[in-house]
Design a protein around this nucleic acid. Structure first.
Lengths: 115, 115
DNA sequence: TAAGTTCTAAACTGTTTAGTTGAATACAAT
DNA sequence: ATTGTATTCAACTAAACAGTTTAGAACTTA
């Protein structure tokens, strides 16, 4: 997952409960790395690495103030994720079965068709 | 990621372009493993493993008919993912800044707070 | 029955990941 | 200057992952 496309980076970053918990915490406002680490039974360096993963995915940004690193949520990638998800909404939103969905698809474009 | 919670399983399954391409293909209707494998420069066994990951996450289901295994999309987990995402929508939907979002949060519950 | 097709299972390999500890950096306070 | 605080960086380990190849199971067709 090291050098991948944005969507892979974002999904990968979210595929970890600790990172989702950090994001959830940041949804309440900015916090220092130490504050983010406190609730977790893990070394500070460990949390620091999780934060870096979130940052690489663009889900948070870091700002240094004195000796503190403050983190804040940057939700833009989540918007992209929403866009991806939208292509599948009809599968649960409506009560279309898969055949109807298939017909509906002929009108629209395709979501994630590789190559 | 082996023995994890549903959300981790789903995010993890989606953190791979091949698996997302498979899902995208299945959005057009059921397909056999061979059909799903065809567009990918990868061994059949490799694709079979990706399919298993998707199945474990509940994103697809498999049905055997003669010597064919037919796969179809089961989008329910994506609905859960949507639920998770909803908790963050205000961060891009409105033009709330983070402080306002914080205040708005005091009224609501919290999304993914671990432990 | 024999041979072909479709797929999974098992065993193996190289790479990535999540976590650790210990040292280094940057700044504040004494 | 020295000590303390907040954090990253580097090196390491164990586990998980993505991929391979080889073999085997299940079924069809000749």
């Amino acid at each position: 997952m090291t050098t991948h496309d944005p969507l892979t980076l974002v999904f990968g970053a979210l595929a970890d409960p600790t990172r989702r918990a950090i994001l959830s915490r940041l949804a309440q406002g900015p916090a220092s790395v130490g504050e983010l680490a406190a609730p977790h039974a893990m070394s500070l360096a460990g949390v620091s690495k999780h934060i870096k993963v979130l940052e690489t995915a663009g889900l948070i940004s870091r700002r240094k103030d004195a000796q503190f690193y403050y983190c804040r949520l940057t939700a833009d990638p989540l918007k992209d994720l929403q866009g991806w998800l939208d292509a599948y909404r009809r599968f649960w939103d409506d009560n279309l079965d898969q055949f109807e969905a298939y017909l509906a698809d002929l009108q629209k474009g395709d979501p994630d068709s590789k190559q």
